[in-house]
């Protein structure tokens, strides 16, 4: 683990694995330090932003150094099930790349339990880890200019759902009707770091 300076009011904690990153994120979040403004997980990092002129960053470091990262605070992860119609444009491509049938792709994707590692790209866009090995496939060579809202896709070690229509290069498996992000809702993002997710086939 490395603590990298990031301007006067933030620090980037670089971790050795996704697991360590999740543990650091959970530890800093659970410490509920009043002067910590943001705790932003990435694929291998946790960005901690403090209120200017406070000791928030030192307190966060102390909390991480005192923690047992093998057993991070659970913070009662939410479990979310997303119903998916597996009719994506890249379903066949994913099956061919994996050397399996389309039905097996659906079985693999619905059979695994995923965890929200981090977010980004758009509000409510969650990068889910736990993708079975055969489905870990590269992005499309040419990204689409428009991917419809609710599209379920995969890229690299992640799977995820586009909360709204946008350009995108993930391989598309299907779509869900579930609303992923509503800025006026009490809980604006359905998926937050640490949440557990399963996909269920509705066709």
């Amino acid at each position: 683990m490395r603590w990298l300076p990031y301007g006067p009011d933030a620090v980037l904690v670089e971790c050795d694995s996704l697991g360590e990153m999740s543990a650091v994120r959970a530890t800093v979040t659970a410490a509920r330090l009043p002067d910590v403004v943001e705790v932003v997980p990435g694929a291998r990092t946790v960005l901690v932003v403090g209120r200017p002129g406070t000791s928030a960053l030192q307190q966060a470091r102390k909390a991480v150094e005192a923690a047992d990262l093998e057993h991070p605070p659970g913070a009662d992860p939410r479990e979310v099930e997303l119903p998916v119609t597996y009719d994506g444009e890249d379903l066949r491509l994913v099956a061919e790349t994996a050397g399996i049938s389309v039905e097996e792709v659906v079985q693999l994707h619905t059979g695994a339990e995923y965890t929200v590692a981090f977010t980004g790209f758009a509000p409510g866009f969650a990068y889910l880890t736990g993708l079975p090995e055969p489905l870990r496939q590269s992005r499309l060579d040419t990204p689409r200019t428009r991917v419809p809202a609710g599209s379920v896709g995969l890229a690299g070690e992640f799977t995820g759902v586009y909360p709204r229509s946008s350009p995108g290069g993930w391989r598309l498996l299907g779509h869900t009707e579930t609303v992923l992000f509503d800025p006026r809702a009490e809980r604006p993002a359905l998926l937050a770091p640490g949440d557990r997710v399963r996909f269920r086939s509705v066709r």
Partner: peptide, 9 residues
């Protein structure tokens, strides 16, 4: 609206 970066905001 600081404080929502972990949700992508």
């Amino acid at each position: 609206r600081p404080g929502y970066a972990h949700l992508g905001v």
